[in-house]
Write a protein that binds this DNA or RNA. Structure first.
Lengths: 251, 251
DNA sequence: GGACTTTAATTGTCTGACATTAAATTCACA
DNA sequence: TGTGAATTTAATGTCAGACAATTAAAGTCC
């Protein structure tokens, strides 16, 4: 792990990479303390600020945590599920917002992934998961609800459905799909959305989950996908029509 | 974006967070240049090393890239799909290796996610995807293949199946599931694995994909999951038996 | 023996400097 | 006047040394 070729480019990135490899490769284990910054500087034959930049890179990926004081230092961090969720959501959000992904593609991926959880969730959902879903449906039916609150409740509903599968790895993988698509779908469809229709579909899904009918849950999700795609298409069509009218007015 | 409370803790983390929020919130757009390190230091009223630590944190998340020279600086980076893949795989690998996730849970999640792609892939796979799958199957049947090469080929086969869905968002989400589970499953089952059985199942899946039969692809994946789970159970049982024998020997 | 003080180790931050890079500019020369 | 080489300039990359802040452990006093 010591070696650092005389490659003059980006020493801090090289050092970060060397330490990351040691962690991923198991040569540094969870909660193990790294050498102090001064020792690392000596080992790699660089200055302390350079070592610090490398450590900050690792900290940004939640690979290490630092602690001040006499027995402080940098420690290999156990990547917790909440941290992994957060990273997953951030990455997914950026990927979608920066890469001109079509609504259709994103929506298709989202529902395909959620349907993957449907059979498991129908089989294993606890009373608690059902109660959460029912509560969110009830909230969504409130007339005074803001658009933001409705969307947050929508996310919470789907989250409960996904968590119902009782598989934390699956929940982690779905975090991006469920929570990163939300701003995207919300911004596009909230003007045209028929809340009653969505609440009815949610009701259908919750009923199917209660009856432990996986096929029905899957069907409900598919219906929700169709609804969302049609909504988006109508919004896009209306938008195009407006642009077209404006163009004709201008000519 | 300027504000930095007099909170004395972790200035570089606060600055990184402020800039990250500006990027995620769209106030800084792709390829836009950030102020120079000296200007940022002045704005945030900190020293340049502190600013640099903040920028390295963002660079570690591929949120910015830096360029040296007269017109250089830090630029908001377009998060590319390959970068997102890499982060996804790293995060998934660490999450699994550090959190005592059972084989059963990981395997279940992996196949549930892959089944989510099956109907789409059966419908849309190109001749190219089919050719890749066939080629990998052929390679897997070679007698002299090392275990590592067999596993790499296994990953390539599943990757082709997933990419066949023609949905880059789905491919990104599956990167962790397909590529992070590989070392895990490999290390456990490679001793007991019957390659011929796996090749036969792969053949079944490829045939189903060629016939555009989504249900058959799904069934093939489920069969592969059952095979893998049974294999793992037999390995664990054998391991437990060995331990038990050793314990009795010792007493 | 317990509460308090001191000490030492470590990270966090700052200052100032120099090295390196690459684009823009200037200038000599054809 | 046009072109290519040399210079300038602005930025990041790196370094050295220092001090502040924090925290646990060792030491000390009652």
């Amino acid at each position: 792990m010591k070696i650092d070729p005389r490659n003059p480019a980006d020493l801090s990135a090289q050092i970060a990479s060397a330490i990351r490899d040691a962690i991923v490769g198991g040569r540094l284990i969870v909660d193990q303390r790294l050498p102090s910054e001064a020792e690392l500087a000596e080992q790699f034959e660089v200055s302390r600020p350079t070592v610090r930049e490398a450590l900050k890179r690792l900290a940004a990926q939640s690979l290490i945590r630092t602690q001040r004081g006499a027995t402080g230092g940098a420690f290999v961090n156990r990547l917790s599920f909440p941290e992994a969720y957060y990273q997953q959501i951030t990455t997914s959000t950026l990927l979608l917002s920066m890469n001109a992904v079509s609504f259709e593609t994103a929506c298709e991926a989202r529902y395909a992934l959620e349907r993957a959880c449907a059979p498991l969730s129908a089989e294993r959902r606890t009373a608690d998961h059902l109660a959460t879903m029912r509560a969110e449906i009830h909230r969504q039916a409130q007339p005074g609800l803001t658009d933001e609150a409705f969307c947050a409740s929508d996310v919470a509903f789907h989250r409960a459905l996904v968590d119902g599968a009782g598989n934390p790895v699956l929940s982690y993988q779905l975090a991006g799909a469920v929570e990163a698509m939300q701003p995207l779908m919300n911004m596009i469809t909230f003007t045209a959305r028929d809340r009653a229709r969505i609440v009815a579909l949610h009701q259908e899904i919750a009923d199917a989950a209660e009856a432990q009918d996986g096929a029905a849950v899957t069907a409900g999700l598919s219906a929700l996908e169709v609804e969302t795609q049609e909504l988006a298409q109508s919004v896009f069509a209306a938008r195009a029509a407006r642009l077209d009218a404006k163009a004709r007015l201008g000519s």
